[in-house]
Nucleic acid binder design. Sequence first.
DNA 1: AACCCCGGTTGATCTAAGTCAAGGAAAACC
DNA 2: GGTTTTCCTTGACTTAGATCAACCGGGGTT
Lengths: 247, 247
Amino acid sequence: MSVQTQFSAGACSDCPIRHRAVCAHCERDELAQLEEIKYYRNFEAGQTIIWSGDKMGFVGSVVSGIASLTQTMEDGRTQMVGLLLPSDFVGRPGRVGSPYDVTATTDVVMCCFRKKPFEEMMARTPHIAHRLLEMTLDELDAAREWMLVLGRKTAREKIASLLSIIARRDASLSPNGPSGPMLFDLPLTREAMADYLGLTLETVSRQMSALKKDGVILLEGKRRVTVPDMGRLMDEAGDDSDGGMFS
Amino acid sequence: MSVQTQFSAGACSDCPIRHRAVCAHCERDELAQLEEIKYYRNFEAGQTIIWSGDKMGFVGSVVSGIASLTQTMEDGRTQMVGLLLPSDFVGRPGRVGSPYDVTATTDVVMCCFRKKPFEEMMARTPHIAHRLLEMTLDELDAAREWMLVLGRKTAREKIASLLSIIARRDASLSPNGPSGPMLFDLPLTREAMADYLGLTLETVSRQMSALKKDGVILLEGKRRVTVPDMGRLMDEAGDDSDGGMFS
DNA sequence: AACCCCGGTTGATCTAAGTCAAGGAAAACC
DNA sequence: GGTTTTCCTTGACTTAGATCAACCGGGGTT
């Protein structure tokens, strides 16, 4: 089950933080104080939100859009290390330099909190701190799951893993439920997929073609994907357990 | 700087949790209560502490020894996704199934807490919850750094990365400081190194031999490593930034 | 229309790492 | 002391994926 769903369940519509990150456990008093210390920032697709090594002046939470976390070597090799979806946090109280670039993949609206008051609020509000810990543990599990993908899976399995994760993320929104055919738009270019999977874009392209030829997926144009049989796709991914990078 | 050092700085010797995880910020009252709910367990080298999918009956913190977290595919391919060093936590309050195997690499002593009281203690004790969040964020950063290693580095760079991380972890203990020559024992077999790096054990062996031939490292037997020039090793690792998987 | 640019595909070739296989050294057991 | 087992090394060969390079097609712009 994705975090999206978990949040939806407990979200309260009158929370002053308008997105759903902390909301599930909110109480009016603390969040009224948050209201005073927060502000919004907008970023265009492609814009870098935080450069690796930059001083992180704020703690931010994505309200809408997608941002990606990437690490880059001097010679230009880059590896995407995570995605920020709405409600995810970035920046940590008490650390100065960011360990990676944060870039807007689509247009992004971010809700920002100045560090000091945010920390004070956390100290005052145990259940919000607890919720943040839960979210961070989820991200850690997802990152570790991704390490298996990067370290041990073949190119075809990597592609299938990525597609099945994206498909499952959207599954909760689908009318057919998770077991029926899935239809979705890839939110990533072939190059971004390659950076995510530790492959080259040519290999990504070839494996997408191969999966299409074998009937595992259907492609309409370059981005629109149909998965006729999720079970088949998950077999191709080489694991039956739950994904979660995107959750 | 490693977590070890951070903790040493603030550790208080009379803390009822005898290792240093939570201690840095401890106050007597809360930890006296922890005393009532904790118990110790011993594991022999090679013994599996938690199987993937197992119900996790406790939250544990390593007191001494090293344990490894691994994920395995049905066909036997395995990927190590993290190490537990003294003071690290495993198991999370509020989740049942472990997403990976936890295995004792050396003999391990673990300090365990029953979940329910541990959660209650967290709710009562914001600064301990905060410390746990900090530790988890550190692990997340380390995992993401490792994703770059797994996804984009060559075999030689992977080996050099691993060696430099181990070397730096021990650097604080070294009389020469971090820039002088380093001497340490590898805590891992070639196979474990391979599982960590997403390589085969033959490739690990070959690259170790190559690094030795090129004078980057000296080997005494199979396990004892000397690094005459840490700068050289870090160049070989392909990054000048801070590692941290072991920190 | 003609142009270009961007993202994507596909082919030909190369190479880093995997696979298979044969030992060697050192500890561990009888 | 000899035998077995575990861990490691090295060699010969194969292969998955990278690299280099040509080309395609749609959506802008002029």
